[in-house]
Amino acid sequence: MQDSSFVQLFPQQASTFAWQVDALFGYLILVSLVFSVPIILALFYFSIRYREREKYAVPKEIHGSMVLETLWSIIPFFVSMSVFVTGAIVYFNQYTPPDDSMEIYVVGKQWMWKLQHSTGQREINELHVPAGRNIKLTMTTEDVLHSFYIPAFRTKADTVPGRYTYVWFNATTPGKYHLFCAEYCGLNHSGMIGTVYVMDPKDFDNWLSGNAGGETPVQVGKDLFENKLGCASCHAGGPQQRGAKLEGLFNTEVHLVGGGTAVADEDYIRNSILNPASQVVEGYQPIMPTFKGQVSEEQLNGLVAYIKSLSPNAAAAPAAPAAKKPDEKAPAGKKADGKEPAAK
């Protein structure tokens, strides 16, 4: 990875879309050269050829040229449009996580990254991921803005208090990579750095089993839902339940009281827990109390993960990666996600 013995001039490429960003960069360098080299050459040529030969000479007056003006308006326009379109395509790729992504939850906090795998392992300022698998990070923060930035993967997104943002990548090359906080977040901003370990899938499985840590987010959520917060008393129990039905809810469109619809995504669920009265679903009374201040960001992640798991078809299929390793003595969360809710 990083080699301090020589001056590095180009960053490593370690994700599937890194080459696209680099290609775009190359294209822009090409565009810059194609436009600036002639301008610079013209500046030098004119400066020499038309240098002052006689004091106070009166050169021929030239007012302008409609043809030239049109040309150098239209051509840059089409060039900049090509930059816009290619930029947009790369952007689309960077921010559209594939459906089969393995999910990891990220909470930023002054001044550390707290990460949790869907299998339960927790990490601080370190992230272990397998090479060659799509990984989606669902991110938020406990305090101020941060920005999750892995230069080698060419991806970055701010984490915003009060909502979720997402980053995904598919790491190509095993190795160690920098993880930076890129949005200024106060005193120890430059200390909010970490390391991403991209591992061979086999090594990753070993790492996972060696670090069988804690409950999975779904289990955390289930526990909160059924026991600690008592959500189940309203949101479970069949037709006479007072709260909205949550099974199959995720990523569907819900109709709200007072008209309007919303897509029940992560932010919607989060908001419904913290500000229930703001988005009441048609057919229900606004009786749910707010849970603001009672749940931490990580517990919220758990609740969201659990509610997502109640919709096995709509949610991305996070179960897949875990299911691939039947040989391991499965840590508690191994067969998590999509399966358990069916039992409910």
Partner: peptide, 8 residues
Amino acid sequence: RGTGFFGH
């Protein structure tokens, strides 16, 4: 925001 445009 959150209209499902482009995946989320």
